[in-house]
Computed example of a mutant assay.
Amino acid sequence: MTPYLTVLVAIITREALRFVHQRERFIAALVRPLVWLLVFAAGFRAALGLSIIAPYKTYITYETYIVPGLCGMIMLFNGMQSSLSLVYDREMGSMKLLLTSPLPRWWLLICKLLGATAISILQVYAFLIIAALFGIKMPVAGYVTVFPALIVAGVMLGALGLLLSSFIKQLENFAGVMNFVIFPMFFMSSALYPLWKMAESSELLYTICAINPFTHAIELIRFALYLEFNGMALVWTVLAGVVFTVAALWGYNPARSGIRRKG
């Protein structure tokens, strides 16, 4: 297992160094959810009433409700940005060098996926710390219990980005595809509004939100932050992650991707 672990550490270290050298990426990852938290939520608070719903035991502010959704937003955008780097590496030729490794291609892609997930989790915790400084605090133990949920959600969303990158050949096309995927997935979920509010406006919209894997990732995070386990959300998030990962590995198959090993 030594070569496998060596490659895993090397790729995660590369992802971390790339992230450290791109401070603008870190700042942008935090500014985006903070704008929603401190600006939009303040305006929506008066317009949107929230009933007592699981996992909450009492009435909560709108800012408190959207924190898990904004954690999901961070992971969603980071998964897409990580995949953008794959498209860039493919255009620059560095991916071909990576794929000349004697290790299986699927392991190299899994390492890339785990590295992106690790960066996402760091960004989420940074956001939760800032939110706490503004008075939006979760149960202390929730910051620990949410960690496994973040891993599952991060892998699922990273696998989705990996899948998209396997079919996108040019950087110019990636931005449009990202917007086509990110915004519908984010807005048609429980990130900003409870599902029962969606049902009040449209049954079709409610159905779309209910089957959206991003909704289940958010609910998994939401329940974990409040020391509760949501088995249904876990099952659907893991299932979506497996499907996205398998499809991404197929997408990077040399027989169809055109990225062949040298040898």
Rank of each mutant, 00 (worst) to 15 (best):
P3T: 06
Y4H: 09
Y4E: 07
I12K: 01
E15P: 04
E15V: 07
R18W: 15
H21P: 04
Q22R: 14
E24L: 15
E24A: 15
F26R: 06
F26S: 11
I27L: 15
V31N: 07
P33R: 11
L34D: 11
W36I: 14
F40V: 15
A47C: 02
L48V: 15
I52R: 00
I52S: 00
A54W: 01
K57S: 07
T58D: 05
Y59A: 00
T61I: 01
T61K: 02
Y62G: 02
T64Q: 12
I66N: 03
V67T: 10
V67K: 02
V67N: 03
P68I: 10
G69H: 05
L70K: 06
L70T: 08
L70V: 09
G72W: 04
M73A: 11
S82D: 05
S83L: 11
S85H: 06
L86A: 06
R90F: 08
R90E: 06
R90M: 09
M92N: 05
M95T: 10
K96F: 11
L97A: 06
L99F: 15
S101C: 05
S101E: 00
P104K: 03
P104S: 10
L108V: 15
I110D: 03
A118C: 14
Q123M: 13
V124I: 12
L128P: 14
I136Y: 01
M138L: 13
P139A: 09
P139G: 08
G142W: 13
Y143L: 15
V144E: 12
T145V: 05
V146S: 08
F147R: 04
F147C: 09
A149F: 09
I151G: 04
V152T: 12
V152Y: 06
V152L: 14
V152M: 10
A153C: 13
G154N: 07
G154L: 10
G154F: 11
G154P: 12
M156S: 12
G158P: 09
L160P: 03
S165I: 08
S166M: 07
F167M: 12
K169R: 14
K169Q: 10
Q170P: 00
N173E: 12
F174Q: 04
A175N: 14
V177D: 01
M178K: 05
V181G: 03
F183I: 14
F183V: 15
F183T: 14
F183C: 01
P184K: 13
M188S: 06
S189V: 12
S190W: 10
S190N: 13
S190E: 10
P194H: 02
P194T: 01
L195I: 13
W196G: 00
K197M: 14
S201Q: 09
S202W: 07
L204Y: 02
T207Q: 05
A210W: 05
N212G: 06
N212C: 08
N212L: 11
P213T: 01
T215I: 09
E219K: 03
I221H: 03
I221K: 05
I221N: 02
R222P: 09
F223T: 01
F223Q: 00
Y226W: 13
F229M: 03
M232D: 08
M232W: 12
A233G: 04
L234D: 08
L234P: 05
V235I: 15
W236G: 00
V238E: 05
G241P: 12
F244R: 00
A248L: 10
G251D: 00
Y252H: 00
Y252I: 05
N253E: 09
P254E: 08
R256Q: 07
I259E: 08
R260H: 07
R260F: 08
